[in-house]
Nucleic acid binder design. Structure first.
Lengths: 223, 223
DNA sequence: GGTACTTTTAGTTTACTTTACACTAACTCT
DNA sequence: AGAGTTAGTGTAAAGTAAACTAAAAGTACC
């Protein structure tokens, strides 16, 4: 029951929290803001929703603008709408999270921002708006999802070794896994197929290179 | 990068999908619409977000208006924003789902709606907007959540028998569970405590009445 | 060219978890 | 008192998860 007519002076924004694993560290992309009152503060990239634009489309737009990559796993995280979250007025944010391999990404600093960087998820700087909460929710979702789906493919390049795969899982979970049990489970899942090739280069036995049989989200118990 | 200034003629609505289990059937509350072009169609109750109102508050307001109940489990489901979802214009809907016991609920038909009814989730009528999709996502989330949390308390009255609890789980999952294994797991979880009383009334051995030790969301494997 | 070094690869045993399954107990109604 | 109905209980078998050690295949160095 509306007591007063809703003027709906509410704006809709989309924020995209982009995650990767780089050098064995679970990281997220933050931009450094220029405008007050958040001058110098870090935040997830985002922007207002354009007319007739779908939120997911906006999230992809933001993703491409920041990384130059179009291929990434993208999922809606949730909507953050605390009336006090934005000092400029009532802005409701639909947050998405994206997962991508770190290989071949060149961060693009655009005019709008002072800087763009990958930050270890475990050591984030103070964030603008309610982005600390967004980060918390996103990391929890990703960790959980790793356990009951095969999303991890979205963080790896086209081919990879079992050690690479295990390392990515360990980085996100923040704990070590048993190598033999890990290999057993992953191979038994039939999600991977061998490329026949192997990775040369180290002073050790070369590792077989695998690829994912299908890069589509499926529910599987992997860990 | 916005090509044109965002006029943001976008409106924000909140819809609340309310679920219960009644007579062993998993049901959801639908209202019948009066206004065209959805005249006669069924939909989840909802409405525009008021200024300075938090989405969750709006969801609670809608919940109370439809059922008279204030106590219910409430969780954000997701935001549905397909530009074509509402024929009246661009309306983005933040959807919530609620779980409540069916005992003591009196549905209130308000002026705004032609009718209000509980509908079996398995046999929904044609729905307005994209509410079919909302229903699908909500039911999937509830079923999944039943497996790794204790949300089921939100569907039961203060005291209940183990048979009641099992019946509610079965109704939502849509499959039968083994009585002895179910009792074993539930009792081992330490989530329940006995009230000491038992349920009289049937022409059979009376069943012990239990209550939940804590009515707070926790992660537990129950099924 | 041989030896030391490093990482990959593979299988078994043990503990635990899950599933399947059938009878007795307690009460009501006639 | 007997028939009918639901509540309440344990055990064995199968499957899943966890712990654990040694050989294979390459490179680097001498």
């Amino acid at each position: 029951m509306a007591k007063h007519l809703s003027t709906q002076d509410i704006k809709l924004a989309v924020d995209t929290a982009i995650f990767t694993v780089q050098d064995g560290v679970f990281k997220t992309l933050l931009i450094q803001m220029k405008k007050k009152p958040f001058e110098g503060r870090w935040a997830f990239p985002g922007g207002l929703l354009e007319d007739d634009e779908a939120c997911e489309g906006a999230a992809r737009r933001i993703l491409a603008a920041a990384t130059g990559m179009k291929e990434a796993y993208l999922e809606q995280l949730g909507t953050f709408d605390d009336p006090g979250r934005d000092p400029f007025g009532r802005v409701v944010s639909v947050a998405y999270f994206a997962l991508m391999p770190s290989e071949g990404v060149e961060l693009r600093t655009v005019e709008k921002y002072a800087d763009v960087r990958w930050w270890p998820v475990a050591e984030l700087p103070p964030l603008a708006y309610d982005h600390r909460e967004v980060a918390r929710v996103a990391a929890a979702r990703i960790r959980a999802k790793l356990g009951y789906t095969n999303v991890v493919w979205s963080l790896l390049p086209k081919t990879f070794t079992l050690a690479d795969l295990q390392s990515v899982c360990e980085s996100i979970l923040g704990r070590r896994l048993d190598k033999r049990n890990f290999r057993k489970k992953v191979l038994a899942s039939k999600l991977l197929e061998s490329t026949g090739k192997s990775e040369k280069g180290g002073a050790h036995r070369p590792a077989e290179l695998f690829r994912f049989a299908a890069r589509r989200l499926a529910h599987v118990v992997l860990l």
